[in-house]
């Protein structure tokens, strides 16, 4: 799994990609299909997409990165706003001349993807939103819990909610490994940024909203409400998945993304 550091605004940012390893300063190989830029959730990191990227890598050029304060990128705190996260995305995309990538966003990452498409729809080919479809439901209790943890008043505990019944232990182990590498202080900052954000101008960009078969009702409801607001959105159910389809069903999700992108190609050809 090739990784490399990219300096973005003086923050050493870890980038995960597929294909051949490239020298420092040289962009990852994006020669296969479309460039698919994966944006992780608060408290997660780019490694969350490892299995999905493996599955996508045959037909596409997937890239993911760790936000500041997350995973193995430098920085103590999260970026404070979704706008700043889009600035970071812009810096990576323009620095490496990533021409109109497809943005795959999970949770907070979905909010970043939507905001990026709103800011410059011509520079985003399509959106794929997973993991709660920008989690537009209440984040207050999670934020309160994180605030207690960062003040030393509560223990940090891994959240096993939102997974499909009978989820294999290996999936939880991967989720735990991704979760534990991020300081709750950064997670708190990222969640606050997400809570402060709202989608004011729905972008006209082809959008696939992926909803897990076992996703919580409020999350499904949020996905539906979001689809109603987006002019070019479609919803697809992911069998055998809860809210964490990226980890639970990476191959099926990759198939869904590939089919979605193929449909865009055929529309373009027509």
């Amino acid at each position: 799994m090739p990784q490399k550091y990219l300096n973005v605004d003086d923050v050493a940012t870890l980038v995960h990609h597929r294909g051949t390893t490239t020298l420092p300063g040289v962009p990852p190989d994006t020669g296969r299909g479309r460039t698919v830029l994966c944006l992780h959730d608060a408290g997660s990191n780019g490694k969350q997409f490892a299995d999905l990227m493996d599955a996508l890598a045959t037909d596409q050029s997937p890239i993911a990165y760790d936000q500041p304060g997350h995973g193995r990128s430098a920085g103590l705190d999260s970026l404070a706003t979704i706008a700043a996260m889009v600035d970071q995305l812009d810096a990576i995309a323009s620095g490496w001349s990533l021409d109109a990538p497809v943005l795959v966003g999970e949770g907070l990452g979905a909010a970043v993807a939507l905001q990026a498409a709103t800011r410059h729809p011509d520079r985003v080919a399509a959106l794929v939103l997973v993991g709660g479809a920008a989690a537009s439901y209440d984040l207050g209790s999670e934020i309160d819990g994180l605030a207690a943890i960062t003040a030393g008043k509560a223990r940090r505990e891994f959240d096993r909610s939102g997974y499909a019944p009978d989820t294999e232990r290996a999936v939880y182990q991967k989720a735990f490994a991704n979760w534990v590498t991020t300081d709750p202080r950064a997670t708190l900052g990222a969640r606050r940024a997400q809570a402060d954000w709202s989608l004011e101008a729905p972008p006209s960009v082809p959008t696939l909203i992926v909803v897990g078969e076992h996703e919580e009702p409020e999350s499904v409801q949020a996905a539906g409400a979001l689809a109603d607001r987006l002019p070019e959105a479609q919803i697809r159910r992911l069998a055998g998945a809860g809210r964490h389809g990226v980890l639970e069903q990476p191959e099926a999700l990759a198939t869904a993304i590939n089919e979605f992108l193929s449909s865009l190609d055929s529309e373009g050809a027509a």
Partner: peptide, 9 residues
Amino acid sequence: PSRFSPDKT
């Protein structure tokens, strides 16, 4: 100045 340098040895 750094307090977190995962990119350095």
